[in-house]
Simulated scan of single mutants.
Amino acid sequence: MIHVLFVCTGNTCRSPMAAALFNHWAEVMGMSSRVRAGSAGMAALGGEAASEHAVKAMARRGINLAHHRARPVEEAIPKADLVLCMGHGQAQLLRERYPRFAERIHPLMPYAWGLRTDVEDPYGGDLETYEAVAEKLEETVQSVLQKLENSRET
């Protein structure tokens, strides 16, 4: 089982949406017995719920995020096989903080697509902003799943 950890700042928007989408698509693609995702935040307040708009954006996709509770990255990183951060700066900081896990830590967009971009933080934005981020994340996690599947086959 490959444990993927998605990391953002507060673990209330991007990373929980990415983990929920990843697990959903792993199920759809028949990979749920081989991969599983969780999420954490660089500055997470443990136990905080997902943002209202994140919950709504996921509900529109048939995914329930209502029970999500934020957790700090310190608790989760040792158990992760692959750590995918929403931004380059987050990945760099985690590599510095946790050098023994550095090879596992990557910015999400370069890992998935080879793009030198970050996933914008929708925090404080309207539902449309969250929808745009959710759409980008949905396509991106599908790319990550395909990459993991392809690496398994070779």
Rank of each mutant, 00 (worst) to 15 (best):
103 E>Q: 13
99 P>R: 00
42 M>N: 03
109 M>K: 14
46 G>A: 14
64 N>V: 04
55 V>E: 04
43 A>H: 15
76 A>H: 07
80 A>T: 03
35 V>P: 00
102 A>W: 06
60 R>V: 01
144 V>W: 06
70 A>M: 10
77 I>G: 01
117 T>L: 10
83 V>H: 05
118 D>Q: 08
124 G>M: 12
85 C>A: 12
68 H>P: 06
66 A>E: 13
50 A>V: 09
104 R>H: 13
145 L>V: 01
132 A>S: 15
137 L>G: 02
79 K>P: 00
113 W>V: 02
91 A>H: 06
43 A>E: 13
86 M>D: 00
82 L>P: 04
33 S>Q: 15
35 V>D: 00
94 L>G: 07
101 F>M: 07
18 A>N: 05
108 L>N: 10
140 T>K: 05
36 R>D: 01
129 T>Y: 14
47 G>T: 14
135 E>M: 10
138 E>H: 00
27 E>A: 15
28 V>T: 12
26 A>P: 01
10 G>D: 00
34 R>D: 00
152 R>A: 03
31 M>S: 05
145 L>N: 00
111 Y>T: 02
56 K>D: 07
28 V>M: 03
105 I>W: 11
134 A>Y: 12
82 L>A: 06
30 G>M: 08
132 A>E: 15
104 R>N: 04
24 H>R: 10
45 L>Q: 13
96 E>M: 15
